[in-house]
């Protein structure tokens, strides 16, 4: 009898847990668009937000695209995600990790001419950790070394 009650509790609890985890995963799935912190360039290009709406644009800073304007404080660069590219202008102080070929999240508004006007920049670091001694290597070389040292 004691064994039976124990089994009943076990089965009920396992069912409750499965339902609970299912509900949690379903909720997370339903939130997948709302809970995203930024839009990627292909989403912005496919469905441009209203020019007065503040949005976040996130992606990679295109190689060779960072240019300082003649006034010395405005910079322009291109954010891309492999499918689409969005030109961005920003006036202010960029975080120290804001470099070409790395991730960035720009907060601002999309102009109707297709340029993004950012009033704040955040740098996004990716999952690759490479020692500084390897900084003169290309990305492919660095990845190779990382693969060999572990």
């Amino acid at each position: 009898m004691a064994i039976k009650a124990k089994h009943q509790r076990l089965v009920l609890l396992v069912i409750a847990l499965v339902v609970l985890i299912g509900a949690g995963l379903l909720a997370a799935w339903a939130l997948r668009n709302q809970a995203s912190y930024f839009y990627v360039p292909s989403e912005i290009v496919a469905d441009p937000p209203a020019p007065d709406r503040a949005v976040r644009l996130g992606g990679m800073v295109e190689q060779g695209s960072i240019k300082t304007q003649p006034d010395g404080v405005t910079i322009s660069f291109v954010v891309q995600d492999g499918e689409a590219r969005v030109p961005v202008t920003f006036k202010g102080i960029a975080p120290s990790l804001f470099v070409e070929g790395s991730g960035v999240v720009a907060e601002g508004k999309m102009r109707t001419d297709g340029t993004f006007i950012a009033d704040n920049l955040l740098a996004k670091h990716d999952e690759n950790y490479v020692p500084r001694e390897m900084q003169n290597m290309t990305d492919a070389q660095a990845k190779q070394v990382v693969a060999e040292t572990q």
């Binding site: 404080v73 202010g92 102080i93 960029a94 975080p95 120290s96 804001f98």
Partner: peptide
């Protein structure tokens, strides 16, 4: 302009 901070 890029931010310069003391990481330490």
């Amino acid at each position: 302009m890029r931010e310069a901070m003391d990481p330490w």
